[in-house]
Design a protein around this nucleic acid. Structure first.
Lengths: 208, 208, 208, 208
DNA sequence: AATGAATGAGGTTTCATTCAT
DNA sequence: GATGAATGAAACCTCATTCAT
């Protein structure tokens, strides 16, 4: 990837995060990069395709980081803790942009973005499932959907706090605090609310 | 409130939910209402003030519903369960619009929207705190920040599922399922991660 | 003329004077009158016809005032002095509106307004001519065009000062000061610059 | 200054002169220039800033012309005559636009335009004062305010004639005709009406 | 007579995108 | 590769005028 393209992506991430996708003009991006408006279109077919590229890059990073966790030879619960920690770190770093992604919906024809999002989400879910089974045994399988939703929800809860407040957080300590909470929940589980495979069958709503 | 104004709000909620605030034109809204562009401005000073009105209306509804819970004479844990249930119902009904609110950032000068959001959030936090103390006693106080984040996170987790999937969910059953999970967590609590009053000191980031 | 119509004219004169014709909306006028927008159109065919009415009224006033001067039985030079004085008084009272009339050109199809303006101007010129002949004898006739332009110019010069400054001026004293200046000029006249009837042949430019 | 920008200014001067500022749309200007509406905003931040640019350009021209008079080594009265002549020439060329400037009031926040107008006016007043003192000696000083108002008034009187009629005028001859009139007035002066420095203390009215 | 909701043309401005240089 | 002038569609908003009540 050419330097110029990377430059554009970096500046765009900042601007999209700060002002939102729709409210950031190509002019602003190219000005921030010190290049001409025309140069933008040498690297990206459209403003939307830039968003796609950013998203893609971002997902690649996340997937790579998660893979790293699985390659480590440590105790299952330590892996789970590390997973939580990485989520916090990663999202903290790109929190503004992530918020933007959550906020903006862009055009109705960005089916491709949804595909990417689903791909990313599936990947996260699978990783979490594997970690849960490693940590709590095969019995967790029938609770895996609920536990995924709960854990991801708790992560999001703290992430929102992190994003909205301006303090610095100790993610290692936070992950270490959350693991016993997850333990508690798992221990108390009886009848699941969600079906085991309900997360697989989710179809992201069309936005026509 | 005049019928026409209500009509505009209803249609706008749908359109904003579907396409986002920035991507929905006043033209689209008025077309959907079967009125002229000019008529819009009889009821709202600007497109942004419409967003504000919607938000206001939405918050009023939510606060009223929560108040109703507190007025009931039922067991504390039942109140908590009812609170969860109401959150799911309410948010389910306006899920798309809520997603939009999360997504869009609108203009940098909408300080007023942030004030409303903070007001709403404070209200929710207070309600939850009261319910937790009623249900688990004064000892929960030092864990109240963590428990608030965790419970709101879990709610959000399931809500995202509800919003993104097209299935119907049984909110009563879901609330009934979650209460024991919360019990488990509370029972297992030892040292808090967050300070007791850390939620009060959050200052919503400026978006200059 | 119905009270309501007079009320509208009065308020409109103020608003036009303050903000200009184009920048004053019918809404503003009716609000200032405490009547409905519809009521406006009961009295005036259009916003432009209101301007016409105002103008008409204004000219009637001026012509009447000038007539009064001629009916007085005083020395010719005193008449001239009184004429100057009345010009200052009248224009001072409606200075803002007059400025507006000078400033705004409104639509290209307001031929009628120009006709009125010409009528008014002719009337002033005739009055001035009569006064000059009375005061300086028939010999002034061949200088009457120049003297008209010069006197009206001087009046305008002081009026501009009056309008732009916020001080109060003593118009009687001013007229009394100007009369000797006019005397001086008349005394010094040799060859006219303008032809005697050049003011009659002026055709207000078309503004198509 | 780019050709396109000059083109826009030239056409705009004509259109503003013909129809007024408020009544001339950006669309009309760009159509007259044979460019797109967007192109306009490449050169001017807004329609109002165009007016400002025009005004600025116009004032620069006038000040430069006046400076030229002072640099000439000719008799003081000839300078005064030349000054009058230049005023007529200059204003004749841009008469329509000047009328528009007098007519329109534009927005209440155009303080900057007023500053420019005042600057221009002060410059004219100073030039005239210098010329009067050179031509009539220091004794004229106590009459300088009155003479300024009178001379500018007379200029305006003839200019209005020039602007409104469609004839061509011989400005040299006109200036030559007016100089003796000024002589007459100066000779006859006794007690001034205005204080010596009353023109300096004029504060252009606010247009809130 | 009086209202004021409704209209819709037209205003200024923005901005993604193209293309000759 | 790189530029930036040019485009023109589309955005938000205003306002003179009409008309059912």
């Amino acid at each position: 990837m050419p330097d110029k393209k990377i430059l554009i992506i970096e500046r765009a991430v900042e601007l999209f995060a700060k002002n939102g996708f729709e409210s950031t003009s190509v002019q602003e991006i190219t000005s921030a990069c010190g290049i001409s408006k025309g140069a933008f279109y040498l690297h990206f077919k459209s403003k939307e395709s830039l968003l796609f590229s950013i998203f893609e890059m971002f997902i690649d990073r996340a997937i790579k980081k998660i893979s790293n966790v699985f390659e480590l030879e440590i105790a299952p619960k330590d892996k789970l803790e590390l997973f939580l920690c990485i989520q916090f770190e990663e999202i903290d770093q790109y929190s503004d942009f992530i918020l933007m992604l959550l906020r903006e919906q862009t055009k109705p024809d960005d089916r491709e973005l949804f595909v990417l999002m689903q791909k990313m989400d599936q990947h996260l879910n699978n990783a979490l499932k594997t970690l849960l089974v490693e940590a709590y045994g095969e019995d967790i399988n029938k609770h895996v959907a609920d536990m995924t939703v709960i854990i991801k929800g708790i992560i999001k809860g703290y992430i929102e706090l992190i994003v909205l407040s301006s303090q610095k957080f100790d993610f290692k300590k936070l992950a270490n605090f959350l693991l016993p909470r997850i333990d508690s929940i798992v221990l108390g589980l009886t009848t699941p609310y969600l079906e085991e495979d309900s997360l697989l069958t989710i179809c992201y709503k069309k936005t026509t």
